[in-house]
Simulated scan of single mutants.
Amino acid sequence: MVTRRVDLRSDTVTKPTEAMRAAMAHAEVDDDVLGYDPSAAHLESEMARIMGKEAALFVPSGTMANLICVLTHCQIRGSEVILGDYSHIHIYENGGISTIGGVHPRTVKNNDDGTMDIDLIEEAIRDPNFDICFPTTRLICLENSHAHSGGRCLSAEYTDQVGELAKKHGLKLHIDGARIFNASVALGVPVHRLVKAADSVTACLSKGLGAPAGTIIAGSKTFIAKARILRKTLGGGMRQVGVLCAAAMVAVEENVGKLESDHRKAKILAEGLNNIKGLKVDPTTVETNIVYFDILKDVCITEVELLKNLEEHGIHAMAEGPRKIRFVIHHQISESDVQYTLSCIQKALNSLKNIAN
């Protein structure tokens, strides 16, 4: 019977710490839908300050947060948003911007580092005065760090360029900052600087920061007032939500400082994987807490088979495609867990060699 568990599926699997549970138990609460929950107000005020925006709003999830932001910027059905073809909003959020908001996605190819070429973004912008057959472009979305690109970070300079392009064409810029704190720590740049050019930004509190739930939206006071109405429309208005906000505040105060260690362990994991014959990963592309690796075609094992083998040893991860696996580090994964994972993978591949012989 396996007693050890190493959960590398995502940084969303973190468990609330004792400090978070204590904060939840003692949180001062009221009705947040009525605008009176003091713990929610405190978290929102602090997050607005950290992000350098006028106001902020707590919502249940990152998917709802991005949906609210897109719909607030694109209030007319048939509007268009430009976003990466591998962006989380486009691939992993159930097509909500289209099915619920009537917003048309116009995708631009994501580069390996998560960016989109500036000239391709500009080419994708529609001129509503040119042809009435076109939807009207109203918004550009970026993602930082970029999950599908392996947690790569977008620089402040790149984001500024996109922001200038948006202004030039009278558009808004939204940043899906689900892991914006990871990007900030990896780049050594404050969050407010990374999102300075953005009209809105989201930040997930339940990934690397480890809160039990919740995402923050930040923007202007006018934007947040509109977002608050949409939150209610989508069923995201909660009553004594200060219980969650108190835990989230602990997460921000205690766990941002742990992200650097997460990144270091991810780099150790990537280097170890790269040293295992039959696997391929470029450690130089591992900038934050996400590691993708490929199983080479000359190895007689699929990603499904390897994941099953690892689960038998208490290690849990996710496939990202044919012969590709993703590991995600969080603060409850130790360096010992990393070494244990590497040893189990090596044993799995060694057993294949013995069978072949």
Rank of each mutant, 00 (worst) to 15 (best):
T215F: 09
R9H: 13
S334M: 00
G177Q: 11
D119I: 03
M238F: 09
F181E: 15
C133D: 15
E312W: 09
V328Y: 00
E254I: 04
I100F: 08
N354F: 14
G278E: 05
Y86K: 13
I175Q: 08
K347E: 04
H169W: 10
G102P: 10
S10E: 04
T215V: 11
N354Q: 15
E287P: 02
N182K: 14
E143I: 01
I121N: 01
H330V: 04
P212S: 02
G101T: 06
I333W: 00
A213F: 10
D7Q: 11
F293W: 06
T222N: 14
V185T: 15
I276C: 06
H169S: 09
F58R: 03
E303Q: 12
E287W: 02
E271I: 10
M249D: 15
A319T: 15
T233R: 14
K168M: 05
M249G: 13
R264Q: 11
N255P: 00
M238R: 13
K324G: 06
K167H: 12
A166E: 01
S206D: 14
E164H: 11
A65I: 04
F134W: 04
D112M: 13
E260D: 08
I180N: 03
E93G: 05
I89W: 07
G102L: 09
Y292R: 10
H313V: 05
K308N: 11
D31N: 03
K53L: 02
V81W: 00
N289F: 12
R323K: 11
P283T: 01
C74H: 07
A225P: 07
S79F: 05
P283L: 03
G101Y: 07
I180M: 12
G35F: 00
V201M: 01
I76M: 13
G78N: 09
G208P: 02
H104V: 14
T137N: 00
N94L: 13
Q75N: 14
V189N: 10
L273S: 00
I295F: 05
V13Y: 13
I276P: 06
G102R: 03
Y158Q: 04
A147S: 13
Q346Y: 05
D32E: 08
D199P: 06
V243A: 01
A251M: 03
T12W: 13
I132L: 14
I180S: 12
F327S: 02
E28V: 11
E287C: 03
E18W: 08
L154Y: 13
V185G: 12
Y92N: 13
I333T: 04
T72V: 14
V33I: 09
C133I: 14
A203F: 09
K109T: 15
D11I: 11
I290T: 08
G235R: 07
M318G: 09
L306S: 11
I276T: 03
Y158V: 06
I329Q: 03
H26C: 13
R5E: 06
A23T: 04
E18V: 10
E312G: 15
G35L: 03
C300K: 15
L273I: 05
T17Q: 02
G78E: 06
G314V: 06
A247F: 00
S206T: 10
R326Q: 08
F58I: 15
K221T: 14
N255M: 03
M51E: 08
D113W: 07
V286S: 02
I132W: 14
L279T: 10
R21A: 05
G170F: 07
A213P: 03
S334T: 01
L307V: 01
C204W: 11
M24L: 01
D113E: 05
N357I: 12
